[in-house]
Simulated scan of single mutants.
Amino acid sequence: MLREEEYQHLRAAGKIARRVREEVPGLVREGVDALSIAQAVEERIIEYGGRPAFPCNVCIDSVAAHFTPTPSENIIIPKGALVKVDLGVECEGYIADTAITVGLPNSQVRLIEAAENALKNAIKTIRAGVRASDVGAVINDTIGKYGFKPIRNLSGHEIRRYILHTGTSIPNVRTKETLKLESGRIYAIEPFVTSGSGSGLVISSNSVNIFSVSMERNYDDRLLTEELNLLRTLREYTRGLPYTLRWIEKEKWQLHEKLVKKGVVRGYPVLVEKTGAPVAQAEHTVIVLEDGCEVIT
């Protein structure tokens, strides 16, 4: 079970995440640079008293996850875009993860509605002892009623202190898994929805601009001094949480690439819908209780 101090940190992170998410529709506009959206989100998280738990994701149309803009790119939000903004807040290592999809001007309204209602219905089912697969079945069935498909190889996830993805996964489809949700555990519930003509699958692209560093020390003796110094800096700053190159001095980027090649830094490829179909997302973080759950975002 969580201690009262842990609840306070989680609720603080959730309050900030909710506040920033509610401001996102005002940031996402046609013709705006995606980088400016991500930076504004991250700056507001800090302004409101938290730290970004991971780089703000700004994913457009068929791009489903793991895309954060970099200064070398010039990604402009196009007319009629479906824009997913996924953000996380960390307070003393306790994480709140949330996402919203914005349609411009009112594109793909039903796709967004399907994602939001799948999330809403899933949350209604959550309590201690419920199987994760039962939550997935509710998400799957809600999306199916719209004639759409869930993304079956993306899922929600358990969260622990300084660990964004761990433990039990929360599927977006029906499965035969028997794992049950436990009281006091934290989960991010995040339905991803694509059109009825889409594949319902995401694939990895060749683009990688989100990373995490290994906290294990068994790699350290293979590194040069300058590589080890950068690794230590990344460990101290991120505590193993995801980050992006724009958070690092540009003169360190080539050195960072060496850490990637040596396997001490992991990259997360941008994920795109296999057929290029649009994707919508909705997400909340919950604390499981005996008789329900507390939505902290």
Rank of each mutant, 00 (worst) to 15 (best):
114 A>F: 02
83 V>M: 05
56 C>L: 01
104 L>A: 06
254 Q>E: 11
140 N>E: 13
160 R>Q: 08
14 G>I: 10
1 M>L: 11
7 Y>T: 00
259 L>S: 09
121 N>I: 05
292 G>V: 03
25 P>F: 00
277 A>G: 08
99 A>W: 06
5 E>V: 02
11 R>G: 08
195 S>K: 10
275 T>H: 00
1 M>N: 10
218 N>A: 13
187 Y>S: 07
265 V>S: 01
188 A>K: 08
93 G>E: 06
224 L>K: 15
16 I>E: 09
239 R>T: 06
256 H>V: 07
193 V>G: 10
44 R>W: 10
81 A>G: 14
46 I>S: 07
187 Y>I: 03
112 I>D: 13
110 R>A: 06
13 A>R: 04
111 L>Y: 15
219 Y>F: 14
282 A>L: 01
14 G>N: 05
86 D>L: 11
196 G>L: 15
93 G>L: 11
129 G>H: 10
156 G>N: 12
110 R>G: 10
141 D>A: 05
75 I>A: 05
116 E>Y: 14
203 I>L: 14
133 S>P: 09
148 F>L: 11
165 H>S: 12
257 E>A: 09
180 K>E: 13
155 S>N: 09
144 G>I: 03
13 A>K: 03
209 N>T: 13
62 S>D: 09
40 A>H: 09
172 N>K: 07
183 S>M: 08
197 S>N: 00
207 S>N: 11
79 K>Y: 00
173 V>G: 10
286 V>N: 09
35 L>N: 05
138 V>W: 06
84 K>V: 00
198 G>F: 05
221 D>W: 13
123 I>K: 11
43 E>Y: 05
232 R>S: 14
225 T>C: 12
78 P>A: 03
64 A>M: 13
256 H>P: 10
174 R>D: 06
30 E>V: 11
18 R>L: 00
156 G>K: 11
230 L>H: 13
87 L>T: 07
80 G>V: 05
62 S>K: 07
136 G>T: 04
140 N>T: 01
140 N>H: 09
125 T>E: 13
207 S>D: 13
155 S>M: 07
191 P>K: 04
150 P>K: 11
37 I>H: 03
199 S>R: 14
14 G>T: 00
141 D>Q: 13
174 R>K: 08
91 C>K: 11
193 V>E: 05
277 A>E: 07
78 P>G: 14
53 A>Q: 08
198 G>Y: 12
271 L>P: 09
242 P>K: 12
296 I>V: 03
128 A>Q: 03
49 G>V: 05
230 L>P: 14
7 Y>V: 03
49 G>D: 00
98 T>D: 14
237 Y>T: 08
55 P>M: 06
164 L>S: 12
69 P>M: 10
4 E>G: 01
247 W>S: 12
181 L>S: 11
58 V>A: 14
28 V>C: 00
293 C>K: 00
18 R>Q: 02
167 G>A: 07
137 A>Q: 12
226 E>H: 12
163 I>V: 09
75 I>L: 07
272 V>A: 04
29 R>E: 03
141 D>V: 02
64 A>R: 12
62 S>F: 02
100 I>W: 00
36 S>T: 09
85 V>W: 00
291 D>V: 06
68 T>P: 06
155 S>D: 06
53 A>K: 11
235 R>D: 13
